[in-house]
Amino acid sequence: MTRPSVRESRDAASDVPRGERPRSLRRLAPPAMILAGALVIVGLSFLLPPFRNYQLATVGAYFCVTGGLTVLTGLNGQLSLGHGALMATGAYTFALAQNRWLSLPVSLVAAIVVTTVAGLVIGLAAARLRGPYLAGLTLAVAVVVPSVTSTFDEIFNSDQGLSVALDPPPGTIPVEQWQAWLCWAGALLSTSLLAVLVRGRFGRDLRAVRDDETAARLAGVDVARTQVAAFVVSAACAGLSGALFAVLAQSVSPGAFPLTLSLFLLMAIVIGGLGSLAGALGGAFLLVALPTLAQAVAEGTGSPRLEGNLALVIFGVVLVVVMLAAPGGLASIRFRRRRTS
């Protein structure tokens, strides 16, 4: 065994001035982040044609859910295959509330609240489960939630789903631009809240539980409560995301939230870089870009039926390539460069 150089460090310790101690570089204030993000989005939305604005909006809607999922899976180590189902919960709640009260804020809040409660229930069960058992539980959620819609078909209108009544955008703003603003308002708000949350005590607790439950307990972390909290926060984001998708599609149906959606979400955050909100943004972008690419390829080769599977294939290939080239995901590439420079 080589002699570790602890003793030198003991002497060196005293002459490390407090000011020079390493600090996290990512200390941009959240209000500044929101403002900068909002300016970029609003600016972009005036430049982009309607369809691109629609895609921009979709990235924002995805960013809500990937942000929450990367906190749950990346920072707290809880795998969820049920986030597609949580999005469905948010979307249906939004649709029902909207068709009844026709008030966007009320429906959005309702979607978040109901999904958060669902997340609390799942989280309470999940906190007792580990590894494959947890995956199994969330898989069950993914299967059961859509089937609820066909069981209570007088409320949810079964496979056809519900159309969503929406007020027209204010003034003369095109629908797609309005959607982009809405989705990104939700995305920026929820992900900045996440950023604030995970930066401090809660974030440390999340990661401590992920890394070593026993040591975390001894350090005073209530493991079960931390895990439930992570699920609740993550579910709230999924609920908001689902509601935004309902706004985008102006309808909800069980087919919009299949199990493959949950798989895509997981792949997206892994490719982006688990546990990183920047990675979640990258993942959200890929969730829109890769299916578009698949569509183009399928049309190019003249086999439109290939399209659905091709997206999965492309995602799989990207996942493998990224994992080989940068096991920490896309976000880690940038990080590594910064460290070596």
């Binding site: 390493p22 990661r207 401590a208 070593d212 040591a215 307990r217 001894l218």
Partner: peptide
């Protein structure tokens, strides 16, 4: 277990129990 810290009782684990995904300071 998670009350010990508040009660002023600290325990180290046999071997090392560490959070490898965070810095030493964290």
């Amino acid at each position: 277990p998670h009350h010990l810290n508040r009660l002023g009782i600290a325990r180290t684990l046999q071997g090392v129990g560490q959070f490898n995904g965070m810095t030493v300071l964290e």
